[in-house]
């Protein structure tokens, strides 16, 4: 009747790690629906393949480590769902699967599995795929073109507006199409309105902190407004960059991956700012079209240091505060004596 390993607080919050991850999955579903709306069943098949690859390699690694794989721990499903959204809908399946295996095995399990990811697995997986097959990952089919589900894609693939921006030219797509996402771009992240709803859903559910996205988007928007990359007016360049670039999607899903994000709120603000600075630098000097994943890998390096320094800063502040308080109370007792 009696159990002894129940520990101190006996009433617990209702949501568990499973519901925490399910929030992110639910936030990703509208993006998959939109990808299906633009590119048909091939988008869903890519998601399926990548999730399957992620889960299988996750289970294999857990067995190798001697741990028992646990069904309700769906962190690899989340990585599996994030990765294909960043690629074009016509990427062959082996690209997605191999990027997924690289992400889960070499980035997640080498550094310790679920919670201790030093680097963001999805970003590293995309970086690996972009390094290996830049042509397949960055050549996009036109939306509403029916892609064959299996076998090579017969659609004509061409570069999207982000390539024009990268080359310095101004994309000639009218604003309505840009806002609705009907242009050649990565599979899931062309429609900025859906992404905004996902951001608010995650913020409301508490799945991500508000500090990192706030500082990240603040700096990115000001940078796009004040220093446009292409010779056009500030707001227009912001609209172009936001809709075509990957940093909006990254700022919501990749930046706030629980493992790599620093824990203190002040450190998160600095982390978001650092990510924004690196993204801008990589955009200006990078050699590739979408360099957000690479910039994020570099910011993950400084995640832990930001936390540790903000901890050190807080200790000094606390000492100063306590010193003033004791001085204040001594003054009061002196008054009373």
């Amino acid at each position: 009747m009696l159990q002894y390993e129940q520990k101190a607080p006996y009433v617990r919050n209702r949501d568990s790690a499973f519901t925490f991850m399910m929030d992110v999955v639910i936030a990703l579903l509208p993006l998959y629906f939109m990808a299906f709306y633009f590119y048909g069943f091939r988008a869903l098949m890519m998601g399926l393949f990548s999730v399957a690859a992620a889960v299988v390699s996750d289970v294999v690694c857990l067995l190798l480590e001697g741990k028992k794989p646990y069904l309700r721990d769906i962190s690899s499903v989340v990585i599996g769902m994030i990765l294909p959204l960043m690629m074009s809908a016509a990427t062959p399946y082996y690209v997605v699967v191999s990027a997924e295996v690289f992400a889960v095995v070499f980035v997640k399990h080498v550094f310790g599995g679920v919670g201790q990811s030093v680097f963001n697995p999805a970003a590293a997986g995309f970086a690996f795929a972009a390094a290996c097959w830049p042509s397949q990952v960055f050549s996009y089919p036109a939306p509403f073109s029916s892609l064959e589900v299996f076998g090579p894609v017969s659609q004509t693939l061409s570069n999207g507006p982000s390539w024009n921006l990268f080359q310095g030219g101004v994309p000639t797509i009218d604003v309505l199409d840009l806002l609705l996402g009907k242009f050649m771009g990565p599979m899931g992240l062309t429609n900025i309105l859906v992404l905004a709803t996902c951001l608010f859903y995650l913020l409301f559910r508490g799945a991500i902190g508000w500090q990192a996205p706030l500082s990240f988007f603040a700096i990115m928007v000001t940078a796009m407004l004040c220093f446009p990359r292409v010779p056009e007016s500030g707001p227009m360049s912001l609209v172009h960059e936001a809709t075509t670039g990957m940093w909006v999607f990254g700022g919501i899903f990749l930046l706030n991956e629980p493992g790599t994000l620093p824990k203190r709120s002040s450190a998160r603000l600095a982390y978001g700012a650092l990510a924004a600075v690196f993204t801008i630098l990589f955009q200006r000097f990078g050699q590739m079209e979408q360099t957000f994943a690479f910039a994020l890998l570099l910011t993950n390096v400084f995640g832990f240091t930001l936390d540790r320094n903000s901890e050190r800063l807080l200790r000094q502040l606390r000492r100063a505060y306590l010193a003033t308080r004791t001085k204040h109370s001594e003054k009061k007792s002196a008054q009373r004596a």
Binding site: R12, S16, A17, F18, F20, M21, Y70, R72, D73, S75, G113, V114, G115, Q116, S117, G206, G209, P258, G259, L261, P262, K263, R264, S265
Partner: peptide, 15 residues
């Protein structure tokens, strides 16, 4: 069903 997962590093305890 109060199952113990592995810590995912979400940082809620810090908040």
């Amino acid at each position: 069903k109060k199952r113990r997962y592995q810590c995912i590093g979400c940082g809620r305890c810090v908040e």
